[in-house]
Every structure is written in C-alpha cells, then in structure tokens.
C-alpha cells in the first residue's frame, strides 16, 4: 500500500488526551516510527496510506495533518555558501 509521511497536530485542548488519539490514529493505519509521539509540542509523525488520510483527519482532537515536506541545509548549492 503506498504511504505518505505525515505530521499530525493535536488540538491544544486535547493534548492531555494524546494517548487516546495515538490509539485511534494507529487504528486508522498511522504507523508511528521511532520518535513518532511528540508530546512536548503536541504532535505525531508517521506514515499512512493515502486512502486513510481523511479518517486520520477526522479523529477528534486532531487539529491538522500536513504531508511531510523535504527540508535541507540552507543554500547548499554552492561551495561558497552553506
């Protein structure tokens, strides 16, 4: 099944409920890898197949889901910049 790397923001007022949200997220197919539960900032990171994305978004307490985007060293395009 093709999967997307995603980051999940948990509502500020649902952060105490993170264990329930994690259970439900896993239930809809979110694969939380190493360092997947980011309790200090109220977020999750993992991967999920694209067909389950909507179900993930609808879990009570989930504020938003963003597809992981690539980020790199700022300006690594030249040997004189870094």
């Amino acid at each position: 099944m093709p999967s997307l790397n995603v980051n999940v923001l948990i509502h500020a007022d649902s952060r105490d409920d993170i264990e329930r949200i994690v259970r439900q997220a896993r239930g809809v197919g979110l694969d939380l890898g190493e360092a997947g539960i980011l309790a200090a900032i109220g977020a999750l990171r993992g991967s999920i197949d694209d067909k389950s994305l909507r179900r993930l978004r609808k879990i009570p307490g989930v504020q938003s889901v963003e597809i992981d985007r690539p980020v790199g060293i700022v300006g690594s395009s030249s040997s004189s910049k870094s």
Partner: peptide
C-alpha cells in the same frame, strides 16, 4: 544535508523536553 518536516518537529520536541531556551535551525 537533507531531512523532512517530521525530523525537525522531532528535534524541536526533544529540545523542549530538555528545557532548551533557544533552538537554532540553519535549515
């Protein structure tokens, strides 16, 4: 020299858990 949003968020979470006053991100 490359990563993703998720690894950055994990790093921010780690810094916060360790009570860092400043997080520097040259990325």
């Amino acid at each position: 020299g490359f990563g993703g949003d998720g690894s950055i968020l994990a790093g921010i979470d780690w810094a916060l858990r360790n009570k860092c006053a400043i997080i520097s991100m040259s990325l």
